[in-house]
Amino acid sequence: MTALQPGGVDAIGALEPSCRNTAAQALAIVRDGVITGEGPTTRGRVHFSRALDADDAAWCAKILTARAVEHQPVSRAEAEALFEINDAATERSDDGRFDDLLAKAVAHHAASASGLPVPPRTVALSPDTDIESWAPVRSANVDADVLRWIASQMRGKRHSNRTLMAMVATFVGAAALPLAAQLPQVFDIGM
Rank of each mutant, 00 (worst) to 15 (best):
M1Q: 11
T2Q: 14
L4I: 13
L4E: 13
L4M: 05
G7L: 00
G8M: 12
G8T: 11
G8Y: 11
V9I: 11
D10A: 06
I12F: 14
I12M: 10
A14K: 13
A14Y: 10
L15S: 07
R20L: 15
N21S: 03
T22I: 07
A24P: 02
A26I: 00
L27C: 04
I29W: 01
D32W: 06
G33C: 01
V34S: 03
I35Q: 04
I35L: 12
G37E: 00
G37R: 00
E38N: 02
P40T: 12
T42C: 15
R43N: 06
V46G: 05
V46W: 07
V46Y: 12
F48P: 12
R50K: 07
R50P: 00
A54M: 09
A57N: 08
W59R: 01
W59M: 04
C60D: 02
A61D: 01
A61P: 00
K62F: 07
E70H: 09
H71V: 13
H71C: 10
Q72G: 11
E78H: 03
E80N: 12
A81H: 06
F83P: 04
E84K: 00
N86T: 04
N86P: 02
A89Q: 02
T90P: 01
T90Y: 07
E91A: 04
E91P: 05
R92W: 11
D94W: 02
D95R: 08
R97M: 07
F98S: 01
D99V: 00
D100C: 08
D100N: 09
L102V: 05
A103D: 09
A105T: 13
A105K: 03
V106F: 06
A107T: 11
A110V: 13
A110H: 05
A110T: 06
A111M: 10
G115D: 14
V118C: 05
V118F: 03
V118Q: 10
P119L: 10
P119F: 07
P120Q: 07
P120N: 03
R121Y: 01
R121Q: 05
L125H: 09
L125N: 08
S126Q: 04
P127E: 02
P127F: 01
D128V: 09
D130S: 02
I131D: 12
P136E: 01
P136H: 07
S139Q: 14
A140G: 13
N141F: 11
N141S: 14
A144G: 13
A144S: 12
D145V: 15
V146H: 04
V146N: 11
V146I: 11
L147Q: 15
R148M: 14
W149V: 01
S152N: 13
Q153E: 14
R155M: 09
G156R: 04
G156F: 08
T163H: 10
L164K: 03
A166Q: 14
A166E: 03
V168F: 04
V168Y: 09
V168A: 04
V168N: 06
T170R: 14
F171V: 07
F171P: 08
V172N: 04
V172A: 14
G173E: 04
A174S: 04
P178Y: 10
L179V: 15
L179D: 12
A181W: 12
A181P: 05
Q182H: 12
I189Y: 12
G190L: 14
G190S: 15
